[in-house]
Deep mutational scan, measured.
Amino acid sequence: GSPLAQQIKNIHSFIHQAKAAGRMDEVRTLQENLHQLMHEYFQQ
């Protein structure tokens, strides 16, 4: 897949890990990143 698709997959797993660790501030930051990446992805 594209590097962007790979990045989106990575962030999904980072979010999963951050949630499991209870780091909600990190989850929020990652979700904002994910949102931006998704936006770029669909602009392609």
Rank of each mutant, 00 (worst) to 15 (best):
A21E: 11
G1W: 07
F14P: 00
L34N: 00
E26S: 03
Q31T: 13
F14E: 14
V27R: 00
E40K: 09
K19G: 03
Q43W: 07
S13P: 01
G22A: 03
R23S: 05
D25W: 05
M38A: 03
F14A: 15
Q17S: 08
Q31F: 11
Q31W: 12
F14H: 12
R28K: 12
A21R: 03
Q7G: 02
F14K: 15
Q44G: 09
F42V: 06
Q7V: 09
Q7N: 04
E26R: 04
A18L: 09
L34C: 04
N10T: 12
A18H: 03
A5Y: 13
E40I: 10
Q7S: 05
I8C: 06
D25P: 02
D25T: 04
Q36V: 08
K19T: 10
G1H: 12
A5E: 12
L4P: 02
Y41E: 02
G22Q: 03
K19D: 04
K19L: 15
Q17C: 10
L34Q: 00
H35V: 13
A18N: 02
I15C: 04
D25F: 03
K9R: 10
Q43G: 11
E40C: 07
D25M: 03
Q7F: 05
K9V: 06
H12G: 03
I11H: 03
F42T: 07
L37Y: 02
V27M: 05
A18F: 04
E32F: 08
N10S: 08
A5M: 14
N33V: 15
Q6V: 11
D25N: 05
K9A: 13
L37I: 06
I11S: 01
T29Q: 14
R28H: 08
Q36D: 07
G1M: 13
Y41F: 10
Q17F: 05
F42P: 02
F14N: 09
R28G: 05
M24R: 05
N33R: 15
Q7K: 10
H39I: 14
E40G: 05
H12N: 07
H16D: 13
K19V: 12
S13N: 13
K19N: 06
Q6L: 11
Q7Y: 06
K9G: 04
I15P: 00
G22S: 03
A5G: 07
R23H: 08
L34R: 01
L4M: 05
Q44P: 06
Q17Y: 07
M38E: 03
L37M: 05
L34H: 00
N33K: 15
H39W: 12
T29D: 08
H12D: 02
Q43L: 12
I11C: 05
P3M: 14
L34W: 02
I15S: 00
L30P: 00
D25S: 04
H16C: 09
D25K: 04
D25L: 04
I8Y: 02
Q44N: 11
N10K: 13
H12W: 15
E32V: 07
M24Y: 14
I15H: 00
E40D: 09
Q36M: 10
E26G: 01
T29E: 12
G22H: 05
H12A: 09
F42M: 11
I8T: 01
S13A: 14
S2G: 11
H12E: 10
Y41V: 05
A5I: 14
L34I: 03
S13D: 13
K9Y: 08
Q44A: 11
R28A: 13
I11M: 11
Q36Y: 07
L37W: 02
F42W: 13
P3R: 08
I15Q: 00
H39T: 12
Q17H: 06
I15K: 01
Q36L: 10
H35D: 10
I11F: 06
H12Y: 14
L34F: 03
I11T: 04
M38V: 07
Q36S: 08
G22R: 02
A18Q: 02
I8R: 00
H12F: 14
L30Q: 02
F42H: 09
E40Q: 12
N10G: 04
Q7T: 07
L4H: 03
I11W: 02
Q44F: 10
L30S: 01
E40F: 07
A20Q: 10
L4S: 03
L37C: 00
H39L: 15
L37R: 02
D25Q: 05
D25R: 03
A21L: 08
Q43H: 10
I15Y: 02
L30M: 03
E26V: 11
I8W: 03
F14G: 06
Q31D: 03
I8F: 03
Q31L: 14
Q44W: 09
H12V: 15
A20C: 09
G1D: 12
A20D: 07
N33W: 15
F42E: 07
M24P: 05
A20E: 12
P3A: 14
M38D: 01
L30A: 05
L30Y: 04
Q17R: 08
I15M: 04
H12P: 01
L34P: 00
R23M: 08
S2R: 06
N33Y: 15
R28S: 06
S2L: 14
Q6A: 09
F42K: 08
S2N: 11
L30H: 04
R23P: 01
S2V: 14
A20S: 07
I15T: 00
K19Y: 12
S2I: 14
H35S: 12
Q36G: 04
Q31K: 09
H12M: 15
I15R: 00
N33F: 15
Q7H: 06
F14R: 15
T29P: 02
Q31Y: 14
N10R: 13
S2Q: 10
R23L: 10
V27A: 06
S2Y: 10
R23Y: 05
E26F: 05
A18K: 02
H16I: 12
L30C: 02
L4I: 09
F14M: 15
N10M: 14
A5H: 10
K19E: 11
K9H: 08
E32R: 10
Q44T: 12
H16N: 12
I15V: 02
Y41H: 06
P3V: 12
L4V: 05
V27F: 04
I15A: 01
Q31P: 00
P3T: 15
Q36P: 01
F42S: 08
A5D: 08
I8S: 00
R28L: 10
E32D: 08
T29W: 11
Q43S: 11
Q36W: 08
G22N: 06
G1L: 13
E32W: 09
L4Y: 04
E26N: 02
Q36C: 08
L30T: 00
E32Q: 10
A21I: 03
Q44E: 09
T29M: 13
H16M: 12
G22L: 04
Y41M: 07
N33M: 15
Y41K: 03
R23Q: 06
A21M: 05
A21W: 04
T29I: 13
E32G: 06
Q43Y: 07
I11L: 15
S2T: 13
Q17E: 13
N10W: 12
I11R: 00
L34V: 02
E26A: 05
Q31S: 07
S2W: 11
A21Y: 02
Q31E: 12
H35G: 05
L4R: 02
T29L: 13
F14T: 07
H35R: 15
K19S: 06
S13H: 14
I11V: 07
H35L: 14
E32S: 08
G22D: 04
H39Y: 12
R28M: 09
L30I: 01
A5V: 12
A5C: 15
F14Y: 11
Q6S: 06
L37S: 01
F14D: 10
N10A: 14
H35E: 13
F14I: 08
A21T: 05
L37G: 00
G1P: 11
K9L: 09
Y41S: 04
A5W: 15
N10P: 01
Y41T: 03
A18R: 01
E40Y: 07
E26T: 05
A20N: 07
H39Q: 14
E40P: 02
N10Q: 14
V27I: 05
A21D: 09
E26Q: 06
Q43C: 08
S13E: 14
Q6N: 07
Q17M: 10
K19H: 09
L37A: 03
H12I: 15
Q43I: 08
R23N: 12
T29R: 15
E40R: 07
Q36T: 09
S13Q: 14
L4C: 04
Q43P: 06
I11N: 01
Q43T: 11
Q44R: 07
K9S: 07
I11P: 00
E26L: 14
P3W: 15
E32A: 11
Q6P: 02
Y41R: 03
I11Q: 02
E40V: 08
A5T: 08
I8D: 00
A18Y: 04
H39C: 06
V27Y: 05
L4W: 06
L37F: 02
A21P: 01
A20W: 05
H16W: 10
R23V: 02
Q17P: 01
H39P: 01
F14Q: 15
M38G: 01
V27Q: 01
Q36K: 13
Q17L: 10
G1A: 11
L4E: 02
Q6Y: 05
H16F: 08
V27S: 01
M24F: 13
T29K: 15
A20M: 11
A5K: 09
S13V: 13
A18P: 00
M24G: 05
S13K: 15
A18G: 01
G1F: 05
Q7R: 08
Y41I: 06
R23A: 07
H35W: 14
S13C: 10
H16R: 14
G22W: 04
F42N: 08
M38Y: 12
